[in-house]
């Protein structure tokens, strides 16, 4: 059974989608990735779709799902390398990728992840207070 490889790179997971995925493969990637996040305690996921010539609604939804799930598992997701034609098509198609952060390439993607993590850390440091506040109320 073919699989999309998931590589661990430091504290991030790196997924490079190099083939045109059929839907089941996309779903299994979703499963594998969430499992991997739990297993590696990764804080960030980079998904490289530079090889993808199309992103249709299903793959779009999968990307969205991955992002949401990762967030629940305390990991951030950045999709990198989206082709311009794909981007245009996604917009025309009406795909809403609100929950998905994107970066032009891998480097920027890593930068984005790190900055997001820093921001998150500072947010989480204040969080207990606000939690307390809320409990007080």
């Amino acid at each position: 059974m073919e699989r999309i490889p998931i590589l661990k790179m430091g504290k991030f997971l790196l997924v490079t989608i190099q083939i045109d995925m059929h839907d089941r493969l996309a779903l299994s990637l979703q499963d594998d990735l969430t499992e991997m996040i739990v297993k590696t305690q990764a804080k960030g996921v980079l998904i490289d779709i530079s090889s993808l010539e199309i992103v249709d609604s299903f793959i779009g939804r999968m990307l969205n799902n991955i992002a949401s799930m990762s967030k629940v598992l305390d990991a951030l997701t950045v999709v990198v390398g989206m082709r311009p034609a794909v981007a245009i098509t996604m917009v025309e198609l009406g795909l809403d990728m609100k929950g998905v952060k994107t970066a032009l390439d891998m480097d920027r993607g890593i930068e984005l992840l790190e900055s997001m993590m820093d921001q998150e850390d500072s947010e989480s440091a204040q969080e207990p207070e606000s939690d307390n506040d809320s409990t007080k109320e």
Binding site: D20, H22, E53, D56
Partner: peptide, 30 residues
């Protein structure tokens, strides 16, 4: 299920052979 992949690849291939631009190829394949 694999036929879905083949279909969109063919769509892209055909549109490229017919001279569609890259962007249009993607739209058609999508």
């Amino acid at each position: 299920e694999e036929d879905l992949v083949l279909a969109r690849q063919r769509a892209r291939h055909i549109s490229s052979l017919l001279g569609f631009e890259n962007r249009e190829q993607t739209a058609i394949a999508t």
